Amino acid sequence: MSSLVTVKRSHLESELLALKGRLEAEGIQCFLKNEFTTQVMNYMPTFEVELQVSDSDLEKVKEVMGALETD
């Protein structure tokens, strides 16, 4: 059974949405952890949204993120 791994964190959900869309276009299922908590409690800087993927997809995620950095 796979577990979820955080691949990127941000205080703003909008910063993660483009990456989430790109990963999903590659067939990688993504989840946003804490997205609703940060919307409700956005005045608290300790809360971050986390983009998570299955640990079985981690190598493919690294490849996609690496390609995005070189573009």
Rank of each mutant, 00 (worst) to 15 (best):
S2P: 13
Q39M: 04
N34V: 07
L16C: 11
S14G: 05
L58P: 03
T37V: 15
D55Y: 00
G66N: 13
R9F: 03
E48Q: 12
H11E: 12
S3R: 08
H11I: 10
A18K: 10
L68K: 03
L16E: 12
K20H: 07
R22D: 12
T6M: 00
E24D: 11
A18D: 14
Q52F: 04
V53W: 01
M1V: 13
S14Y: 07
T37E: 15
T46L: 08
G27H: 10
D57T: 06
R9P: 00
L4S: 09
L16S: 11
D55T: 06
S56D: 13
Q29G: 04
N42F: 11
S14Q: 10
K62W: 04
E59F: 04
V40S: 09
L19W: 04
E15Y: 04
V61Y: 00
K60H: 06
Q39A: 08
F36M: 15
K62S: 14
K8I: 13
L68W: 02
K62A: 14
M44W: 10
S3F: 06
D57W: 02
S10W: 01
V61P: 01
N34T: 08
A67W: 00
D55C: 04
L12A: 11
Q29A: 07
S14A: 14
E48P: 01
T37F: 06
